[in-house]
């Protein structure tokens, strides 16, 4: 978990610095951080053994509507 948080922080800091230097728009920075955060939450849920299982969610949705 500590490794994941470390990777996440390093990625956010590095990508933000690069984006500021390359003159990226605020929207681009926000989307970048939002996507990385969604991924970070998904990864954390796996490490904490309570995965946000998208496959299962899709399965439940299909079962709900079809079966």
């Amino acid at each position: 978990m500590i490794m994941l948080i470390a990777f996440y922080v390093v990625y956010i800091v590095a990508s933000t610095i690069t984006m500021v230097r390359s003159g990226a728009s605020v929207k681009e920075k926000t989307v970048n951080i939002a996507l990385a955060t969604i991924g970070g939450v998904l990864y954390a849920s796996i490490i904490l053994r309570h995965p946000i299982d998208t496959n299962q969610i899709i399965g439940w949705t299909i079962d709900f509507f079809i079966h």
Partner: peptide
């Protein structure tokens, strides 16, 4: 948006755990 670089890299963060 305009720049693909900062979309492709964070996509790895999402695809990897899924």
């Amino acid at each position: 948006l305009k720049n693909r670089t900062f979309i492709a890299l964070p996509l790895i963060w999402i695809i990897l755990p899924i």
